[in-house]
Simulated scan of single mutants.
Amino acid sequence: SKFTGITCASAISPALKDYMPISKMAPVTDQVVIGTSGTLIKWITNKKLATRDIKILVFDEADHMLAEENFMSDSKRIMRDIQSSAGDCQLLLFSATFNEKVKDFITKVIKKGNQIFVKKEDLTLDKVKQYKVRVPDEIAKIEVIRDKIFEFGQKVGQVIIFVRTKISTKNLHNALTKEDYVCSSIQGSLDHAEREKVIQEFKDGYTKVLISTDLLARGFDQSQRSIWS
Rank of each mutant, 00 (worst) to 15 (best):
V128G: 02
K103A: 12
V109N: 05
K112G: 11
A67Q: 07
E69S: 03
K129H: 12
K103E: 11
V109L: 05
S73E: 00
R80V: 01
E68W: 01
I78S: 01
F59I: 02
N114A: 15
L66H: 03
N70Y: 05
L91S: 01
A86Q: 06
F117W: 04
K76C: 10
T124Y: 05
D60L: 08
D81G: 03
M79A: 03
F117G: 04
Q115C: 14
I78D: 01
R80G: 02
E69A: 07
V128Q: 13
A96W: 14
Q83S: 14
L92W: 13
D122L: 12
V118R: 06
F59A: 02
D122S: 14
V135G: 08
A62S: 15
L93G: 11
N99W: 10
R77C: 01
L57E: 05
A96T: 08
A96I: 05
A96V: 07
E69F: 01
T107A: 12
L93P: 10
Q130P: 09
A67V: 00
T97V: 10
V135Y: 06
S84C: 06
V135L: 15
D88V: 09
D74K: 00
K120R: 15
R134V: 04
D88C: 14
S95Y: 11
A86F: 02
S73H: 02
D60S: 09
Q130S: 12
K119V: 07
N114G: 07
K76N: 07
I116C: 09
K127V: 11
L125M: 15
L92K: 06
E69M: 01
R80N: 08
A86D: 07
M72E: 07
M79S: 06
T107I: 11
Q83I: 08
K120M: 09
V133N: 06
Q130R: 12
L92E: 05
F94H: 13
Q83R: 14
R80A: 07
A62N: 03
E68A: 00
V128P: 03
R80W: 03
S95A: 11
D81Y: 14
V133W: 10
L93N: 11
Q83V: 08
D63W: 02
S75C: 07
I106C: 13
K103C: 10
L92M: 15
S84Q: 11
G113L: 05
Q90F: 10
D104T: 09
E100R: 05
E61S: 08
M79V: 07
A96N: 12
